[in-house]
């Protein structure tokens, strides 16, 4: 099925009737996913959003429960099940949702806060037509033209968007948009990244054996220990849990945390298993390229290139991959 690009606003209006629709947009000079305001044009082309859409399913600060202190404690869980649509999310960011599904929904415990949002979100993905020079998703095993876990997959068809439903949720979307859709449409699906990285199938296991390799002394020194890479990363999911008290009441919340921070693994007694940036960067790279693969069978790096683009020290995980593949 295809949707005329001139009908895009009409289509979004239908979707926005009973859900919050997030689209690629701009706030104060930063391209990111924004709540669609009912009329703005949507920027589906150009560079990918500078910030990933992960905060829609995993907010950077998320309230968990309210409590009352005193002689008798009361705890009241905060339950939110917002109906949300992420429109125009690219295959790299779609793969990051796959990674987060593994983390939050598997291995013994289901994370209720994530699962409630995940169940109620509709993912309308857009095949990438404009990879940046820092994009390397196809080296990480992705197809920039397709997101298998999308509810609806869209691809550019010139004057139209070519739509295909992959799930029941997706079929419901196409039904809702039926009046605006027509049969046919030729989609462009030949996007490839220009940056090719030597991410060999053997690398995850090879890295596991390189924990004490001198390569870490070299590749970690430029790091300034900030959290930019982790906060612009679509797959970094580490969080902290903390309290916010107001008198005898308070709220427990969780918020994004970063393995780059000095207090991240420091224990109450002062012992820190990852005391310097060498151990921290090593853990981050290993997590992305080896540990996660060992645990969940896929890479935790989707090749979106945001960390390469934003690192203050211009550190580059693709240079590390190439170097590690060679040694």
């Amino acid at each position: 099925m295809q949707l005329k690009k001139t009908d895009l606003t009409g289509a979004l209006k239908i979707l926005a009737a009973d859900a919050s629709v997030f689209v690629p947009g701009e706030i104060e000079g930063i391209k990111r996913f924004v709540l669609w305001d009912g009329e703005s044009d949507v920027d589906l082309g150009g560079a990918n959003t500078q910030l990933p859409p992960k905060d829609i399913l995993f907010p950077c600060t998320e309230k968990m429960y309210n409590y009352k202190m005193g002689d008798s404690i009361e705890i009241k869980e905060i339950v939110e099940k917002p109906r949300q649509v992420i429109f125009g999310i690219r295959p790299c960011d779609m793969r990051s949702i796959d990674c987060m599904d593994h983390v939050f929904l598997e291995k013994g415990f289901v994370d209720s806060y994530y699962s409630r949002k995940r169940e109620n979100v509709t993912l309308i993905a857009m095949g990438c037509t404009t990879p940046e020079r820092t994009c390397f998703c196809d080296s990480m095993g992705l197809d920039p033209n397709n997101a298998p876990n999308a509810d609806v997959m869209m691809n550019d068809g010139g004057d139209t968007l070519v739509l295909e439903a992959y799930t029941e949720k997706g079929k419901a979307v196409l039904e809702a948009l039926n009046g605006l859709l027509s049969e046919g449409g030729q989609a462009k699906k030949d996007t490839a990244c220009t940056l090719k990285v030597n991410m060999t199938p053997e690398l995850p296991e090879k890295l596991a054996g390189m924990f004490d390799h001198p390569i870490w002394d070299e590749v970690t020194r430029a790091c300034i220990g900030c959290a930019t890479c982790t906060y612009v990363c679509p797959t970094c999911y580490c969080f902290d849990i903390d309290s916010d008290n107001h008198g005898a009441e308070g709220t427990k919340f969780r918020c994004w945390d970063s393995c780059m921070f000095s207090d991240y693994t420091r224990m109450a007694g002062g012992h820190d298993p990852r005391p310097t940036k060498k151990e921290r960067v090593r853990n981050r790279y290993m997590h992305k390229l080896s540990y996660f693969h060992e645990r969940y069978g896929q890479h935790l790096c989707v090749g979106c290139g945001r960390c390469v683009e934003k690192c203050p020290a211009h550190m580059d995980i693709t240079m590390f991959i190439d170097k590690a593949a060679e040694v």
């Binding site: 900030c226 994004w256 970063s258 207090d263």
Partner: peptide, 30 residues
């Protein structure tokens, strides 16, 4: 992300007030 602090030559406190989470000057909530 604290990149501004970490890159700044004048931000050279051994332990930044913002990292003293256990004291609680600066929360992690955004």
């Amino acid at each position: 992300c604290y990149a501004c602090r970490n890159v700044c030559p004048a931000c050279n406190c051994k332990e930044c007030y913002a990292d003293q989470y256990r004291v609680g000057w600066q929360g992690k909530q955004n």
